[in-house]
């Protein structure tokens, strides 16, 4: 069992490291069409200078809604778990 653990972890770890090695060189993204669009068009389309905010709240606003929902869900769940309960 122990060797299974170590072996599996080594395999996964090795493949992840290999994946990092196979990635395109660091700092030189290959396809930047989407990001170039965001960088160019944000000042006109969403009249905003912080492009990240524009992406977060406009172009990918739905993700942000989902994220807010996760937080809301977590708060509700924590409130459910940690409410006053008797044994």
């Amino acid at each position: 069992m122990r060797w299974l653990r170590v072996g599996a972890l080594l395999v996964v770890f090795g493949l992840l490291i290999a994946a990092a090695g196979w990635m395109r060189p660091y700092g030189e993204p290959v396809r930047t069409d989407m990001d170039a669009y965001f960088l160019e068009r944000t000042p006109e389309e969403v009249v905003v200078t912080n492009v990240v905010t524009a992406v977060v709240f406009d172009y990918r606003g739905f993700d942000t809604l989902g994220e807010a929902t996760v937080l809301f869900t977590a708060v509700m769940a924590v409130a459910l778990i940690l409410r006053r309960w008797r044994r």
């Binding site: 009249v47 200078t49 905010t53 709240f57 937080l71 809301f72």
Partner: peptide
Amino acid sequence: TEAGSLWAGGTVPLMNWAVGLKVMAG
């Protein structure tokens, strides 16, 4: 209509506030 103004961005600043309050309270 001028990027860089405090009053630009449409719903973005409002959503900022909504999310800010939400994250704070959450």
